[in-house]
């Protein structure tokens, strides 16, 4: 199911390492990006074949890491930090607020598949807590007002 373009990208990754196997994590990233941000089993199998690894091995590795999505996620994946700094400056209230607005609980996706809401562990933005990550963007120093604006903005995309 992977395209020529994906394989070409994987080729450039392989060139960075002394072994093909080392290109596995980056190759899975490329495969995930090419598949609406999740990794179907067939995609993992294709990566395995291309790198000369057993499909079961690749699945074993992919399932170890939380950022490889093993099931489809919404177009905007909201990951709100709830670790020990964000927690004491309002993260839980924020998560409830977002859940209420979108009508989803933690780990759920809206029926229109636009949003998935998840909690995240420390995102390394503790000096600007609370914070969340949506795709490749960080939003920091969050307040409910700020979150409302962000959600409205994302809803249009």
């Amino acid at each position: 199911m992977l395209t020529e373009e994906v394989y070409k990208k994987i080729d450039t990754l392989i060139a960075k390492y002394p072994t093909k196997k080392a290109a596995l994590l980056p190759a899975l990233w490329v495969a995930q990006a090419a598949n609406d941000n999740w990794l179907p089993r067939e995609a993992m199998a294709d990566v395995a074949k291309y790198l000369g690894l057993a499909p079961a091995y690749v699945e074993g590795v992919a399932t170890f890491y939380t950022m490889y999505n093993k099931a489809p996620v919404g177009r905007h994946h909201l990951e709100v930090c709830h670790n020990i700094v964000c927690m004491v400056v309002g993260a839980d209230e924020l998560i409830d607020h977002i859940g209420g607005k979108l009508g989803v609980g933690r780990g759920e996706t809206t029926p229109d598949r636009k949003f998935t809401l998840n909690t995240a562990e420390c995102l390394g933005a503790c000096a600007n807590a609370p914070c969340m990550m949506v795709g490749d963007t960080y939003y920091e120093d969050l307040t409910t007002e700020k979150v409302d604006e962000i959600l409205a903005d994302l809803a249009r995309k």
Binding site: K16, T19, K21, A22, A23, L24, L25, P26, L28, W29, L51, L53, G60, V61, F64, Y65, T66, M67, Y68, E121
Partner: peptide
């Protein structure tokens, strides 16, 4: 080289495993 979400990968030997394409 990008990790993929695992605190344990910061432990140096787990990090090396991860860099080589293994579980962290």
């Amino acid at each position: 080289h990008m990790g993929a979400g695992a605190y344990e990968c910061g432990e140096e030997s787990a990090l090396m495993s991860s860099l080589m394409g293994e579980r962290g």
